[in-house]
Design a protein around this nucleic acid. Structure first.
Lengths: 220, 220
DNA sequence: ACCTGAACACCGTTCAAGT
DNA sequence: ACCTGAACACCGTTCAAGT
């Protein structure tokens, strides 16, 4: 009785699992940012000692891999709804869904761009994508090439969008912009309202090239 | 006498300055990685208390901005040697020089891709680049668009290259690749030896589009 | 099987004090 | 002006111990 009361007083029932820990981790990152995220704070949020987490995940690093997986599985689900069997339009949907993650989880997104895919779910995701390419008669080399080019572009673009006002630094950059008017005048065209258009422009450039490449070298 | 001896015993003479601190910081990051980098280790390397650094830089964050600046100024110098007045070929040289930083400073590079430019030197760098575009009669909007597209691509590509064997994880991914043969067979085309070609392919795609755009909308 | 608690070896940063 | 040293409020992780 007193035991259960104590637990309740500790913010939440422990009720730990890979799922609850990983979900809480993403929430904490969303709220406080990657720098501020710690296993100790996560413990507090889950109502347990930080060390309890280590029974489920061997290290913070592996936990972060799980968060990456969670986000990428979300992307996979998002494009599965469309369910096109055209690889080019799948890649297009994927690119937009990936960028949407950056907008929905701005503080967690750098994980995706920075860490190697290293989990079951992320590999399953890639497997699905590459399987579709092969069904379309696109060979592995072309698949690899365009996957790398498109995914690099998307990662970099989203990261650029998010390399954001880190607090009072904004004042510093504002002062610098005044002193470098050419940077100022070009930067005006990089305001958020223009970014959808620019992103799509660059993406379509690549997809058009893919289309040309698949026509030149058709299904074997 | 005993005082100087003590100092000498502490690895190096303090001899602090913005330059020495920033240079040592980059060296330390190159050697030990971003995660392991700390102001306390930096102090040890410089032969001073960690807190001495705070007289020159108000925070670790600002020091890292200075490291970013140092690297970007290096990129600026590298392309200044070429000294072409054609914006497209300058952008090409820039892209390759930027990626070279990723190879020369693999552990520091994520800073460049992750942090907003926020210092004198980085702004001067952009100013120079944008000035050249204007001299060529390329308007601010087109400059902004292609700068963003190309720089995003380069950041993302280099980051992908570097999202690297984080120690024993390599075993985990090796096991996963076995279980997902389609990922395996596509990944073979993403080995380091192919990456120069893929990078150049994607880059030239974008530069060709820029060339078309400047012909359509010539100098005013 | 699952979780706690103390302990270890670290962090960034503040601030009073020294020279 | 430049640097030290103690202190504060944190970290990730190990490990013996509890239930």
């Amino acid at each position: 009785m007193t035991a259960t009361r104590k637990k309740a007083a500790k913010h939440a029932s422990p009720d730990l699992s890979h799922e609850t820990i990983c979900t809480a981790a993403l929430e904490l990152i969303d709220e406080e940012g990657l720098e501020a995220f710690s296993t100790r704070k996560l413990g507090r949020r889950l109502g347990c000692e930080a060390m309890a987490i280590y029974w489920y995940y061997p290290s913070k690093d592996v936990l972060l891999d799980a968060v990456v997986e969670k986000l990428m599985v979300g992307v996979g689900v998002a494009i599965a709804d469309k369910a096109s069997d055209d690889w080019i339009s799948t890649l297009r949907d994927l690119a937009h869904a990936y960028r949407r993650v950056a907008h929905e989880h701005p503080k967690a997104f750098p994980l995706l761009a920075t860490r190697r895919f290293a989990s079951e779910g992320t590999f399953a995701f890639l497997d699905q994508l590459f399987a579709l390419a092969r069904e379309q008669g696109i060979d592995d080399k072309l698949t690899a090439k365009f996957y790398r080019v498109v995914s690099s572009y998307c990662s970099g673009f989203a990261l650029n969008e998010l390399a954001a006002p880190r607090g009072p630094q904004d004042l510093r950059t504002a002062a610098l912009r005044k002193r470098f008017p050419r940077v100022e005048s070009v930067s005006e065209w990089l305001e958020p309202k223009y970014l959808d258009e620019i992103f799509t422009f660059g993406l379509e450039l690549q997809l058009a090239a893919l289309e040309r490449a698949t026509r030149t070298e058709p299904a074997s």
